[in-house]
């Protein structure tokens, strides 16, 4: 089947098997290997991307279901050389170790901050509770997201200041 998916703002048209998973479409067809695969059963969240803005587990979405939709992956998160605040937060607060869960965590927490710019630690934990990190014990991920929230707020305040 021919599908067109807008990936990180760029339309991509491919002829794919109907059974192809979105995660494999991104990784194997488009060579966007930042999106990972970890479990088969929608438990681990290493494959989270945003489908029309909503975080989804791309191992549980068929590529053909994304036909006509927008998909955002970790590769599109930074603005050129400038990191998104969540990326900077993860680096600053040691929110990653092996890095395998990181792209999914970044996409989920970016979506969280888009709808709640000042989430409590409990809200952050709820937001990432469908994703597994085997390295960090989660605490530094929570701190990373709080860092991103506070940094964004501080920047916005300095922009409105005279």
């Amino acid at each position: 089947m021919e599908i067109t998916v807008r990936v990180n703002g760029v339309p991509q048209t491919r002829d794919v098997e109907p059974r192809l998973l979105l995660t494999h479409f991104l990784r194997d067809e488009l060579r966007l290997t930042g999106t990972h695969w970890g479990c088969d059963t929608t438990n681990c969240g290493a494959c989270v991307v945003r489908l029309d803005g909503v975080p989804v587990k791309s191992c549980t979405v068929l590529a053909v279901m994304a036909d006509g939709a927008s998909v955002d992956t970790v590769e599109g998160l930074a603005h050129g050389a400038e990191l998104d605040p969540v990326q900077e937060g993860f680096v600053t607060c040691h929110g990653l170790q092996c890095g395998f869960c990181t792209p999914g965590m970044l996409m989920t927490t970016r979506a969280l901050l888009d709808r709640d710019p000042d989430p409590s630690p409990a809200t952050i934990r709820e937001a990432i509770s469908g994703q597994i990190c085997r390295c960090t014990g989660y605490e530094n991920i929570v701190r990373s997201v709080r860092w991103a929230a506070e940094r964004t707020q501080a920047e916005q305040q300095s922009e409105v200041a005279p």
Binding site: E75, L83, T102
Partner: peptide
């Protein structure tokens, strides 16, 4: 190492 990991540019 984090510069590559947060950009999805790790190489597994």
């Amino acid at each position: 190492e984090d510069a590559r990991f947060v950009r999805g540019r790790g190489r597994y």
